[in-house]
């Protein structure tokens, strides 16, 4: 008898509860789709996070140090202190991202348990594994990964990345690398869409990427996930340049809180990103911003300090 009652109760509960499928590819890629046309800003304190949200950021990246400072201070850069991320999560209602080291799946597990909305497996931190990136598919939380070219982007997607960003050269305040990577990806996609069926296998071999993803890209003329530009954006015009070249949004790292007037610069970059195709708006928002962050000439950065070469 008691068995029967248990069963009946169980069935009641099941009927009450609609089945929810969490962490599916659709909801992971879907969050990135909601961020399109927006600006994601690096922040290190709850105050900065609030400034970013008020300026119109679609998400913030919670960090202990912005890339420009990581570059300056050197040493091993790891996942940020949990308290730093938690306080930022408490301060804003927009999604909060955090960085894990390349290949450090336990940092990623910890960030997922904390409840961050997106994990950036990032070359800005010191890589934990020289051979393997994180297998991102089993995670419920979505991942964004950096890429310098199409092959790299497709390998990350094969591992489960729900969003791609160019690597650029983080903390440099110099847009040239990001533009190189963005153009590289778009021209390679364009080339793929001209190929015939028998050329796909060779293209997949050259790209070092799975055939079915290569076919999908060729068919749709775009990556199967949202693609942002990151690494070196310092001004509203930089952001609008990326958008006009086909980026779906921008990450701004050191560019905001290393500028003379962070609140105003943040707002200006947001507006220039939304109205990237209207030079009058970009002009208007670019007025009286004060000094942007200081930039670095890429050739002046010692080779071993270049971040974009981390990962493969």
């Amino acid at each position: 008898m008691p068995d029967k009652v248990d069963k009946a109760e169980k069935m009641d509960k099941q009927q009450d509860k609609t089945p929810k499928h969490k962490g599916t590819e659709k909801v992971k890629r879907g969050l990135a789709q909601m961020l399109k046309g927006g600006v994601i800003m690096d922040v290190t304190t709850p105050e900065q996070a609030t400034i970013a949200q008020e300026a119109g950021a679609v998400a913030v990246m919670a960090l202990e140090r912005v890339p420009a400072d990581i570059r300056k201070e050197g040493g091993v850069a790891r996942m940020a202190a949990i308290e730093v991320i938690q306080r930022i999560m408490d301060a804003v209602t927009i999604p909060v991202m955090a960085k894990a080291r390349i290949g450090h799946f336990v940092e990623a597990q910890v960030l997922e348990a904390l409840g961050v909305d997106f994990i950036d497996e990032s070359e800005v931190l010191t890589p934990a594994d020289e051979h393997y990136h994180i297998d991102k598919r089993p995670f419920t939380v979505p991942f964004v990964c950096g890429a310098r070219n199409l092959g790299e982007a497709l390998r990350r997607i094969a591992e489960g990345a729900a969003m791609i960003r160019t690597k650029g050269e983080a903390g440099s305040g110099n847009i040239v690398e990001a533009i190189r990577h963005l153009r590289e990806v778009t021209s390679e996609i364009r080339r793929l869409s001209t190929l015939s069926e028998e050329e796909f296998v060779a293209a997949a071999k050259d790209l070092g990427a799975p055939l079915e993803i290569v076919r999908d890209v060729a068919e749709h003329g775009r990556l199967p996930v949202v693609t942002f530009v990151a690494g070196g954006i310092a001004t509203p015009a930089d952001a609008a340049l990326c958008m006009q070249l086909g980026s779906e949004g921008v990450f701004v790292g050191s560019g905001i809180f290393k500028s003379a007037n962070p609140g105003k610069t943040a707002k200006a970059i947001v507006e220039a990103t939304h109205y990237f195709d209207d030079p009058k708006v970009v002009l208007e928002v670019s007025k009286e911003l004060g000094a942007p962050m200081a930039g670095l000439e890429i050739s002046q950065i010692p080779k071993e300090q270049l971040l974009a070469g981390r990962g493969w």
Partner: peptide
């Protein structure tokens, strides 16, 4: 109510 079902890890596909 915003983010009423929780943060991203609670995002889900549900038949309605």
């Amino acid at each position: 109510k915003r983010n009423a079902f929780g943060r991203q890890v609670e995002s889900a596909e549900v038949p309605l």
